[in-house]
């Protein structure tokens, strides 16, 4: 099963996972690496390296909050490894999608699915709903 590592500024990743588990139930093989305020970049790199070492040679998909910044710098260095993939802009819909699908797909396939699902989940809702009928 593809291992998932969520890497974010603050506790966003921890709460994303907690929220996903509220919907899908407890998950195995999902790891969170958080960059906390006033934490040094080297600390994040150490935490990430420790998680990746634990994961070992398993197919791994890293979900990153956004491109640029300390988490990006730390993660990008790890992407020379052929078994590690990464998607930026993690959101709840894409996390739910890949947690449900990861038994059957490689990290590379999951990365493509995550991008598709994450993008499609973002809607400008009001124009889609059309005009409201007045007080009917």
């Amino acid at each position: 099963m593809t291992q998932i590592v969520v890497v974010t500024h603050g506790r966003l990743g921890e709460e994303l996972l907690r929220t996903a588990e509220m919907i899908l139930g407890p998950q195995e093989g999902v790891h969170v690496v958080s960059l906390l305020a006033e934490e040094r970049p080297e600390t994040l790199q150490d935490k990430l390296d420790a998680v990746l070492q634990r994961v070992g040679a398993d197919d791994t998909l890293i979900l990153l909050d956004f491109l640029g910044g300390t988490p990006y710098n730390a993660v990008a260095r790890c992407l020379r490894d052929s078994h590690i993939e990464c998607v930026t802009g993690v959101n709840l819909p894409l996390l739910l999608e890949i947690l449900s699908a990861r038994d059957a797909f490689s990290a590379a396939d999951l990365a493509q699915m995550a991008v598709r699902t994450g993008r499609e989940a973002i809607k400008n809702l009001k124009p889609l709903l059309g005009p409201a009928s007045d007080g009917a």
């Binding site: 970049p41 956004f66 491109l67 640029g68 910044g69 300390t70 990006y72 710098n73």
Partner: peptide, 11 residues
């Protein structure tokens, strides 16, 4: 030592 570093360099 981080060279280009997201928001810092953007600023």
């Amino acid at each position: 030592d981080r060279l280009i570093h997201g928001q810092v360099v953007a600023n």
